[in-house]
Design a protein around this nucleic acid. Structure first.
Lengths: 346, 346
DNA sequence: CTGTTAGCGCGTTCAA
DNA sequence: TTGAACGCGCTAACAG
């Protein structure tokens, strides 16, 4: 027996019954109304209105190869303003292509990342843009996504061959470091998370490369591996209070930059006992931080546009999804987009 | 004819065929393996592995009343760090309840907001948390969401009766204003977007109420309606350069605060021709901004925890979804959670 | 324990 | 222009 109007959500049949037509006519009306008499359409629309009927997307999607219109975005820390901008960039492009985004947060945890991706695939998302957590050497499976196109953003992962949008980390870091060196700095400490994150590693490489070019080798005490803001602040405090304080810091991301800025400001303002005219330490920051330029600290910013990066990643994805690509699915070759880094000084 | 192994995505039947069992056995194995012999499960899992099979969630959901496991979150500006934290709070709770979040960005556009919500409903999302754009008096339909539970966050909308998590805007604003007054400020300008956004309106009310309590009426020149950071900066510049500059500013949100801080810093640092010891204007900011406390500007911050707010909204939602609520759907009564505001001074 | 039957809500296909 | 039949991928409900 058909349980027509059980208080649950209305279906095509309910609408059809109310409008005195077949479900098919309702279906046609809902999808543009081709080959349906206007007056019948009118009746159908009234019934739709009256019942508050909405076509069920899930059911639509069962009809094979009907895309879900959903793009997955997995980031490592939604609370970081950087990824807010990033997601905004993805959303911009996705919206232009009539898609919505599903945002997941891995929290730098490969485990959560894995289940996130598995879930994305199970939901038949059309594609996934991933900022890999990369802590443990998780290969995240070749195409464990089950054929769902994947684009890596910001960071890459060894052994994964797919489209990616990265930042010109090494060159950017080298350029920023060069600026410090040009100012005469020789004792420069590095703050960053080098453990398995490609981005941090590349920035570190660029940093040391520039140092080496100036004939400087990194003092082990000057290499500080941190991720959190507070930890970075603590490290800077210790170094500045130590016997051999650096004259400048290189901060590898915006979280460590905030910590470093805080510590440097404290040192500048709150340490009356500091030697009279000891100069304020300089800071070179990879990634921009709002308001940082107003602090009166010698600042070098190596920045790129997070939103543009997200947009670029999305475009790469839609190129494969909507583009007039190869007939089959044999992706031609992984493409790599490199976002340029701008060095600004304050 | 069953087109078994057409290069497309594998289905239950493909797995069943390979494992030599019925689709049902595969289904059972996939959902916990109740009542399936271990050795058969093993065979099935092998087939699953070999084919890279993943159950199709869309198809699952067609089986009535199977929830999608998706929560919608619609915010007005993903690029605002505030909403990043907010989304993070929602995600925390959603993850704890085994759900994912779909993030949409309305961009303060009621039109986009409407289509976003319609789409959420069509996708059978289990619930929606909305920061309403509220620009045009869009009633967003009574339950135009088609029965999908809705929770408003941060802002409310007239005429919509549903659960909401708001900020104690009026009292917080009054407290912050009182702090300025206690410092002797009498000429205080207001920066904010009052046009139809409940939050801005409440903050404005709290501000003027506190002024009135001190026997002050707001100078019309001191009421600046802005939303964007740059516009706020421009307004502050004009006021400070004008004939009757305020001695303090009240900024109604973090975007205007950034603009105000920028303009005030400029004025302080870049205007040598300013009267010798004219004091730096004070700023009272609704919402915290990273690094603002380090600028050396007399600062009063009225802050609340965006992440906690998001979490509270999510909890309200899951209370209705998973909670042992009323048997039917007749929601008992809209609940309102008010997030406290803390006033800090720098 | 396992397979068969019967749909979920919708859209494609074909016939009327 | 409309409707009936069938199938999408999966899973309750009932056999066996």
């Amino acid at each position: 027996m058909a349980r027509s109007n059980a208080s649950s959500v209305p279906t095509v049949r309910d609408v059809a019954a109310l409008a005195g037509v077949s479900p098919m006519t309702v279906s046609r009306t809902m999808s543009g109304g081709l080959n349906v008499r206007p007056e019948v359409q009118e009746r159908v629309r009234e019934a739709v209105e009256k019942l508050g009927y909405r076509p069920n997307q899930s059911a639509r999607n069962t009809r094979l190869s009907k895309p879900t219109g959903l793009i997955g975005v997995a980031v490592t820390n939604l609370g970081n303003p950087y990824y807010g901008q990033f997601a905004l960039g993805v959303e911009d492009v996705a919206a232009a292509h009539g898609r919505h985004i599903v945002v997941g947060n891995s929290g730098e945890d490969p485990g959560r990342e894995g289940s996130l991706l598995a879930d994305f695939a199970a939901r038949q998302l059309e594609g996934v843009i991933l900022v890999p957590a990369g802590k443990g050497g998780n290969p995240l499976g070749p195409r464990q996504l089950g054929g769902v196109p994947l684009v890596l953003a910001t960071r890459t992962v060894e052994g994964v061959e797919c489209d990616a949008v990265l930042v010109d980390d090494a060159n950017g870091a080298a350029a920023g470091t060069a600026a410090l060196l040009a100012d005469g700095h020789r004792r420069i400490a590095f703050l960053g998370d080098v453990a398995g994150i490609s981005t941090a590693q590349s920035r570190f490489d660029g940093f040391t490369h520039a140092l080496a070019g100036a004939g400087i080798s990194l003092d082990p005490d000057y290499l500080v591996v941190v991720r959190e803001t507070d930890a970075a602040a603590g490290a800077v405090r210790r170094l500045l209070a130590g016997p051999n304080p650096p004259t400048a810091f290189f901060s590898a991301n915006n979280r460590t930059t905030v910590g470093a800025l805080r510590a440097i400001c404290e040192w500048r303002d709150g340490v009356p006992q500091r030697p009279a005219r000891l100069p304020v330490p300089a800071l070179a920051s990879f990634d921009d931080v709002e308001l940082a330029d107003l602090l009166g600290i010698p600042l070098t910013v190596m920045s790129h546009d997070a939103r543009a990066l997200g947009a670029a990643a999305a475009r790469l994805l839609f190129d494969r999804l909507d583009g007039t690509t190869a007939p089959a699915e044999a992706s031609p070759a992984p493409r790599l987009v490199l976002m340029p880094v701008t060095v600004r000084r304050y």
